[in-house]
Amino acid sequence: MRKRNLVIWISLLVALVLQIVPLPTQVDVYRPDWVLVVLAYWSMALPHRVNVGVAFLTGVAMDVLVGTTLGIHSFGLSICVYILAANYQRLRNYSVWQQAIIIGLLSALYHLLTFWVQHLLTDIYFQVDYLWPVITSMVLWPWVFWLLRRTRRQFSIA
């Protein structure tokens, strides 16, 4: 039981590391939402284990790692995972490409929510570049889905 939970937490830790790994400035604009994509997979596959509470804790860890105001990423991830958890039975029946579109919409919602909260707290203005990760997260979804599904089956996580 603990080994199975450890696999989920390790995948979230890897997503957090990928989220903060330094990239060149030209490429950093396109960085996918690794944490959101991994949380989306686990919340659709195992909604009784990975839920809004896990998303909130992961968001707090991301806030600390990125250095933003505490709660910004927690808020966005919690809302997105709540939407996924509320509709997981329907979303499981979609093809991977249809799920990628849903992930793109959730990524857009996540970025708009985090921008909105940051705009309320600081003096930033919206730029279209904020939405590039939506496209890369959509493109990344089928591969992350395949990798995490394979991992879940290999370790018999249910």
Rank of each mutant, 00 (worst) to 15 (best):
L6M: 14
V7Y: 15
V7P: 05
I8H: 12
I8Q: 13
W9N: 13
S11T: 15
V14P: 00
A15M: 03
L16K: 03
Q26W: 15
V27E: 10
D28S: 12
R31V: 07
D33Y: 12
D33G: 06
W34T: 00
V35S: 00
V35A: 02
V37T: 14
V38T: 11
L39E: 06
A40I: 03
W42A: 06
M44C: 05
A45Y: 15
L46M: 10
L46K: 13
H48T: 15
V50E: 14
V50D: 14
N51S: 13
N51W: 12
T58P: 03
G59V: 03
G59Y: 06
V60M: 15
A61K: 04
L65M: 11
G67H: 14
T68F: 11
L70N: 10
I72T: 14
H73W: 14
S74P: 06
S74A: 15
G76Y: 01
G76I: 00
I79T: 06
C80I: 02
C80V: 02
C80Y: 04
Y82C: 03
L84V: 11
A85N: 15
A85V: 14
Y88M: 04
L91C: 07
Y94Q: 06
S95C: 05
V96Q: 09
Q99S: 04
Q99P: 00
Q99G: 02
I101G: 05
I102M: 10
Y110I: 09
H111C: 03
H111P: 01
H111R: 11
L112E: 11
L112A: 09
L113W: 08
T114D: 05
W116T: 12
V117A: 04
V117Y: 07
Q118Y: 08
T122M: 06
F126K: 01
Q127L: 10
Q127E: 15
D129F: 04
L131E: 08
V134R: 09
I135H: 11
S137F: 05
W141D: 10
V144Q: 04
F145K: 07
F145Y: 15
W146P: 01
R149W: 11
T151V: 07
R153T: 05
F155A: 02
S156G: 00
I157N: 02
A158T: 08
A158S: 06
